Amino acid sequence: MEKIVLGVDIGGSHITAALIDLEKKKEISKTRFRARLNAHASAAEIIGAWALTIENAMGRYAGMPAWISIAMPGPMDYKNGICLIKDQDKYESLYKVNIKEKLAQRLNFPAAKISFRNDAVCFLQGEIFSGSIKGLDKAIGLTLGTGLGTAHMIDGKAFDSDLWKMPFLKGIAEDYISTRWFVTRFEELAEVKIKDVKDLVENHRDSPYFRSIFIEFSMNLAKFIYKFVRKKMPLAAVIGGNIAQAEAFFLDDTRKYLAQMMGYSFPIKRSTLGEKATLIGAGSCL
C-alpha cells in the first residue's frame, strides 16, 4: 500500500480525488470522484464537502492509502496546511483555518500523512512524471482557471513561480488571465453576464463578441508567457485548467502572437493528462 496514495485537486469551483498507483504512474480505475463546490460557503460546509469526496474515492479501494496529497491554490502555508486565501472571491471563510487538522479529524486520518502542495506545481509535476513534457529537463506550466497558477521545473522537480500577482498591463497577471477576466470583459462588451468560459463557449458562440474576446485573451496570454519565458528560459510550456478546455478558440493564436514576440516558434503544449495531471502530480510530489 506504500505505493498507493490519494491525490486531491481543489480548485475555486470543484474538488476531484482519486487513488494513484505511483509504481504504475497512473490513476487507479473507478476511484475518481469529482464534486462542484460553493467557494463562498462556511468553513464547515466546504471542509465537509471536501471530506465527503475524499471518503468516496478512498471507499472504492481495499485498505487505506499511505498518504493524502492535496493540490490547492495559494496563497497558503502549505507546510502546516493553513489557508491564506484572501480577497480573491473564493474561500473567504477558510482564511487562517488549519485545513490539515480539520480534515484529519473529519477523516480519522493522521494529520502527519496529509500534505498540501501548490496546484500549479502539482500540475507541472504530473506532466513531468507521465505527461506531455516527460523527458524535458526545463519547462514551465500554467493552470488557467478561476485563478492563474504558474510553475517551473528545476532538475525534474516542479516549483511555484508565484507569478499570478506579477505586475501586468494595468493590474496584475491574474486580472487578465482567469475566468474572472472573461466574465468581466464579456459583460463589458456584450452587456451579458456569463458564469464562466464553459458557459461562454456553450451558449454565446453566436455573439458578435465571441471571437474578439478570445483574440484579446490570446494576446494577453502570449504577452504573459513571453515574460515568463524571459524569466525562466524553458524549452517548452504546458497549459492546463478549465480555460484550457477551450483551447480551440485561443491556443493557435497564442502561439502565433508569441512567435511574433520571440522571433521563433516556442512550443506551447496542451496537457495530455488533463485533470489527471494535478492528481498524479499531487501523489508524486511526496
Rank of each mutant, 00 (worst) to 15 (best):
M1G: 13
M1V: 11
E2Y: 07
V8M: 07
G12A: 05
I15D: 02
T16G: 06
L19N: 02
I20M: 15
E23W: 06
K25A: 15
T31I: 01
N38I: 10
A41S: 13
A44I: 12
W50N: 01
T53G: 07
I54S: 00
M58D: 04
G63L: 06
A66W: 00
I68Q: 00
I70P: 00
G74A: 09
M76I: 01
M76N: 02
C83Y: 03
Q88L: 14
K90Y: 11
Y91M: 03
R106S: 10
L107R: 00
N108F: 13
A112G: 10
F116M: 00
E127Q: 11
F129K: 02
I133W: 02
K134T: 14
L136Y: 13
H152S: 08
I154T: 12
W164V: 00
K165D: 11
I172T: 10
S178W: 08
T179C: 05
V183P: 00
T184S: 10
F186A: 10
F186T: 01
I194P: 04
D196L: 09
V197A: 14
V201I: 13
I213W: 03
N220V: 08
N220F: 15
K223I: 09
Y226I: 00
A236M: 07
A237N: 07
G240D: 06
G241P: 04
A246C: 09
A248L: 09
Y264E: 15
S265C: 09
T272M: 03
A277N: 13
L279Y: 05
